[in-house]
């Protein structure tokens, strides 16, 4: 079969390279609603399986276009004629962006410590090796950061942050994205950006395995 419409990430979200970050985020939330299970607009056009595949593409598109530096890198590729969603992946772009320049993670300036330091909890944070969702939530609450604030800073939807804290795999996209979200959450909460995500993902995969096994 001849294939000539190679949807790029912009087509997936129905935005264009001139769209602002805000428009991209709005389009993402519309696209996520569109392809979430049971939307009547899918009726007789897409099967549940196809909708899930589109939802995966939507998440992937937003993980690139929703991040300024990855988007810039992606735009360069588009300019060179690399377009299809099957030709570039989020992971590739992430790797490349680390080589060319440090990842432009959200600014943390807005988050001043306004919480009371509890030395024993601080010690526990430093010693922690099991970064479960429950632990992330406790640190967040200890630092008086609401879900909405965390979402505003990280640009990860509060729905996902909630799911990460409760380790609800069924409400989360593919693990590679979850990892990206956890890195950002750890960064904002002042947790170890390497140890945290590694440990969380290990626990997350165990939960996944337990759920399917």
């Amino acid at each position: 079969m001849e294939m000539n419409t190679k949807f790029n990430y912009y087509d997936i979200l129905e935005v264009n390279p001139q769209s602002s970050q805000n428009e991209v985020t709005e389009a993402y939330s519309r696209a996520r609603i569109t392809y979430s299970g049971g939307n009547p607009a899918l009726y007789t056009i897409f099967t549940q399986k196809e909708a899930r595949e589109y939802l995966r593409l939507v998440e992937e598109a937003y993980s690139v276009l929703g991040n300024k530096s990855l988007r810039a890198l992606y735009d360069q590729k588009l300019g060179r004629g690399v377009t299809g969603v099957d030709q570039v992946t989020y992971e590739q772009l992430l790797q490349e962006s680390k080589i060319t320049r440090p990842l432009d993670l959200p600014k943390l300036g807005r988050l001043k410590p306004e919480y009371e330091i509890d030395e024993s909890f601080e010690t526990r944070i430093r010693a922690e090796t099991q970064f479960s969702g429950e632990f992330l939530r406790r640190v967040r609450e200890y630092k008086h950061v609401t879900l909405e604030q965390l979402s505003a800073i990280t640009k990860v939807s509060s729905f996902y942050i909630h799911a990460i804290e409760h380790m609800e795999a069924q409400n989360l996209p593919a693990p590679v994205f979850v990892r990206g979200y956890v890195i950002q959450i750890c960064r904002v909460l002042g947790l170890d950006e390497k140890k945290g995500p590694d440990s969380y993902m290990k626990l997350f995969r165990e939960t996944l395995a337990a759920a399917s096994g």
Partner: peptide, 16 residues
């Protein structure tokens, strides 16, 4: 209110 935008996106992806 989400229905209209969803139909629009579905038509774009399915029929182009």
């Amino acid at each position: 209110l989400d229905l209209g935008p969803s139909i629009r996106l579905v038509c774009k992806h399915f029929f182009s």
